[in-house]
Design a protein around this nucleic acid. Structure first.
Lengths: 181, 181
DNA sequence: CGCACTCTGTACCGATCGGTACAGCGCCCG
DNA sequence: CGGGCGCTGTACCGATCGGTACAGAGTGCG
């Protein structure tokens, strides 16, 4: 199938963008990590590096939407959805060893190119979490949601800076306690 | 004086690294922003781009040490030092419009090159704040300090991502209230 | 004045950048 | 079996990368 090579390449592309940023992710690196030559890469992504990055951002957004945001909004048990969010976040970011690509893009390169997607990712997260908190009876739902999303990003920065995954683990415990008691 | 051109260039260099990251900050950009040709740049920084980045990181570290960490540790009134920290942070980061270079470096490029400096910057901040909180009588000083430093970094990420300085302003108010009542 | 020394613009280096062109391989379908 | 097409490796493009070499301008001092 035409799109299967494309789909298969996405996780590898994501990893390279995560580790090197947009400008730092060279076609040589992208090709090496995916195992695809330049020809294949441009056949699958005619738009070049920009299309690869967009596709990766969309895939990440879709994953979070399905695994985290949708349950937060729709699960009849909001507290269960929040617990699920923390478990998914811990697994996804490998307890802080893995960086958030969207957050990294927001800070430096490719910010202008992908600003809309970046903003949408965080806004959706904050709003879905606020929805769950609201249904759980919190009246400070929006503030608490913003604070939580922001703390997770900060936790990733500090964990990476200090090279100490315990920072992220402690943070998630604190946050979950604050949200779910 | 020999070092005056060097010193004068540092803020401009810092701004370029902040906006483009380490690999994204080309010598062309660095030269344009500082107003120095390649010859002058390499005369002032014989070690090239790496020395420029190190110098910038050191200058930032020194500024935070003098303006924020030292008062946190030494001011006889720890609550005043904490208030001063929030005012300095708000001014330095221009209410979130400006990104933290150290945090940006921690997330992506140049991380390995400058890991020690990056870790020292955050560890010093966390420890100085914990010292102040401890002297102010908080028994959860270390946790609270870690949480605060991390939240500021996350606030910068989210503010940039959503392009909304109000996020950072709200965060600082919340944090100061949590620390100083 | 003239020497010496600091500084700086410019030309140049090999390497690598993102991207394009294209020839040929292999697979599928008629 | 054979023709066509999806796919891919490779050579190549101009631009730019970080870095070096160096000649000459500017400057201060004996």
């Amino acid at each position: 199938m035409a799109s299967s090579a494309r789909e298969a390449a996405i996780p590898a592309l994501a990893e390279v963008f995560r580790e090197h940023g947009y400008t730092g992710a060279s076609l040589a690196l992208l090709g090496a990590r995916t195992g695809l030559g330049k020809g294949s890469l441009y056949h699958a992504f005619p738009g070049g590096k920009a299309e690869m990055a967009q596709t990766v951002l969309d895939a990440i957004g879709a994953w979070f939407e399905a695994e985290i945001y949708a349950p937060l909004r729709d699960d009849p048990d909001p507290r269960a959805a929040i617990a699920r969010m923390f478990a998914a976040v811990d697994a996804y970011f490998q307890s802080g060893r893995r960086v958030c690509l969207v957050g990294a893009f927001a800070l430096s390169d490719g910010r202008d190119l992908f600003a809309a997607r970046i903003a949408a990712y965080f806004a959706a997260w904050r709003d879905a979490l606020a929805e769950a908190l609201s249904r759980a009876g919190r009246n400070d739902a929006v503030t608490l949601a913003e604070d939580t999303v922001l703390a997770i990003q900060g936790g990733l920065v500090l964990t990476r800076a200090l090279d100490d995954p315990a920072v992220f683990a402690r943070l998630l415990m604190r946050l979950e306690h604050r949200l779910n008691g």
